[in-house]
Design a protein around this nucleic acid. Structure first.
Lengths: 226, 226
DNA sequence: AGAAAAGAGTTGACAGTGTCAACTTTACTG
DNA sequence: CAGTAAAGTTGACACTGTCAACTCTTTTCT
């Protein structure tokens, strides 16, 4: 803790990099309280800085939370990728995506809730940029798995069209998100058993999609606002 | 506003019934701010009572919110029932349930979010009783529609077994909840178009379920903790 | 009936919050 | 090496949820 200690990363300013230390502290508090109603001041306390220091890095509390959510999406992307390692069957890969998605949510409910919550969304600017790019990264992985599955014949070729493809991925996205939410918000349980349900449930959806793809009413456009 | 005015409902105490007036005010605030971070004091102000009057009816802010959520579930149950009127085809009825479910969520995002949120859940007591019974009422409607569909041959008879039936309804429940959440949290849109996607998406799931019902891993038990 | 108890609402207080403004210290720039 | 901008601090403000003590009204009990 001595000030003379040299770090491998050069610390450009007073603290080193407060910003990421604050995110760390917030991540911890989020896990402890399972709620993002903790005070900015408490976060500052944990980082051993004054109650106003955070404002030099995050204009509002919301911005800190957005940075936390971004971390969550990055972690999700990483886990998903590593869960895909070694799997070659396209359908297997889709199921693996689903399993890690739900598992991560159940492992850290408050973080998951925050990531998909709209507390972050400001009326005029929408979702903060930092979160958008992190979320897009995570989303791209699943979209790719889906596209691969289409190409390798798991789904009918019509799903390669942007419209039908979007509807199908939205369906998958929805069922996973819904299942996770219901589990972490205590509407069904116990959580570990819910995880085991991803395969059969997502499996049923995939079957339904391949036998009769969700037909998009013409002219409808689904905006993936990530 | 004079005190001498006689109401049809006898007002037993000072205000009439503050409790429900508070819920009304909170419902309004919820809709205005799209967030339940409004202050209890503001609710009291709107009901023209002192900042501490609410505590005579709700021990904590959480309890007021629970009452608000309960109202939401009751409204949902009512809408669902009325959307079912005149529909006889079992599959049509299931789709109608889905449509109203999503539509209600999109029509009042903050209320929907509150209803399914875990802010209300206290660590020891779980979800407040008042919300549980209201939610159970709403849930029972969809469960019944599902059971009817099984009985009238939309799904294979194995879905009449408690296990498979539970998994299947959970799948439906999940895809609707997930779709609604993604829509109201601004991950996909525009909302009106998402509503139009309920039929094709839920339809695909129903197809998948009937062609190959989600098989429950033995011994797994899904607790519908409503 | 009247007295006593309970219910409903009020006033005042307390610690704690998010954020603003003004200040000091440090690090980097020309 | 001076000067400026970034990073962090101190103090203040209005506001919050909740507790305790008080008052007024309604109900209940003899």
């Amino acid at each position: 803790m001595a000030k003379s200690v040299r770090r491998s990363t050069p610390r450009p300013y007073h603290h080193g990099n407060l910003a990421s230390a604050l995110v760390d502290a917030a991540l911890l508090l989020l896990d402890e309280t399972q709620d993002w109603n903790f005070s900015l001041r408490e976060v500052a306390r944990r980082a051993s800085v004054s109650h106003n220091a955070p404002y030099k890095h995050f204009p509002e509390k919301r911005d800190l939370l957005a940075a936390v959510a971004a971390r969550g999406f990055e972690a999700l992307a990483e886990s998903t990728l590593s869960s895909l390692e070694g799997l070659t069957d396209a359908r297997e890969r889709l199921l693996a995506c689903g399993r890690t998605f739900v598992a991560r949510g159940i492992a850290n409910p408050a973080l998951y809730r925050l990531m998909f919550s709209a507390v972050l969304t400001s009326p005029e600017a929408g979702r903060p940029a930092i979160e958008k790019v992190a979320a897009a990264k995570a989303r791209a992985i699943m979209d790719k798995a889906f596209a691969d599955a289409t190409q390798s014949g798991v789904f009918p070729p019509s799903l390669a069209s942007p419209g039908e493809g979007a509807a199908a991925t939205l369906a998958m996205w929805s069922i996973l998100h819904g299942l996770t939410m219901l589990a972490i918000d205590d509407f069904v349980g116990p959580p570990k058993d819910i995880e085991a349900l991803v395969d059969p449930i997502l499996g049923a959806l995939l079957n339904g999609i391949s036998s009769q793809p969700p037909a998009l009413p013409a002219h409808i456009w689904i905006a993936p606002r990530l």
